[in-house]
């Protein structure tokens, strides 16, 4: 088993929480893990990414070579496109469809979705809307993770167990909201 993942978004959108959950699931599964994070100045409203590699064999590089990622998980549609050069030809893009516009030259919505639909395997979801509709307003990032579950090679049950452990300290209500969010995402990705 070997999965290379690019997690991306804008500083403050919660991509490191997604990374933490995947990492927790992989650790419990006895997999080798490397996860390169971005800390510091680039967090302030700028683009952020994290490269996460899982494998049943030892992993050398902390960075993913270009053209070899299995999946891009993005909290923002333009940010997903920023990293498509890392994607394998048959790799998946799982992204939030809602633009976060905090720069004056943000691209036109149509140009953006046209470019996105040029990618061979894309799931673009309005995760904020899904989060509100399903009464889990703070768990849009976990909905996105649920939508990516099929591409991770980890199994939803393992992700769910990891969600329970990661959010344990925050109380039952938070745990259940995130477990629900995971399922919402998984189901949204199917239809």
């Amino acid at each position: 088993m070997k999965t290379d993942i690019i997690l991306c978004g804008v500083g403050g959108q919660g991509i490191l929480t997604i990374a933490t959950i995947i990492g927790e699931a992989a650790l419990a599964d006895d997999l080798y893990i490397k996860q390169a994070e971005v800390h510091g100045m680039s967090q302030r409203g700028g683009d952020v990414q994290s490269m996460l590699r899982l494998s049943s064999d030892p992993i050398f590089s902390d960075l993913v070579p270009t053209g070899s990622a299995d999946v891009i998980i993005s909290m923002e549609p333009m940010e997903a496109l920023r990293y498509v050069r890392y994607l394998k030809p048959d790799g998946w893009v799982i992204t939030s469809s809602a633009p976060l516009v905090n720069i004056p030259n943000y691209p036109d919505a149509e140009a953006l979705s046209a470019e996105l639909s040029r990618q061979p395997h894309v799931i673009a979801l309005d995760i904020e809307r899904l989060a509100k509709e399903n009464a889990v307003p703070r768990s849009s990032n976990v909905i996105l993770l649920g939508a990516a579950a099929h591409a991770l090679g980890l199994g939803l049950d393992k992700l769910e167990a990891a969600v329970r452990r990661v959010f344990e300290r925050k109380g039952d209500a938070v745990v259940e909201a995130n477990v629900k969010a995971l399922t919402v995402g998984k189901e949204a990705a199917v239809c």
Binding site: R44, D47, M78, R82, I103, P107
Partner: peptide
């Protein structure tokens, strides 16, 4: 290397 699509704009920290 595949190119990054032209539609992608820089998003500096702020």
């Amino acid at each position: 290397q595949a190119a990054t699509p032209d539609v992608v704009a820089a998003r500096p920290p702020q």
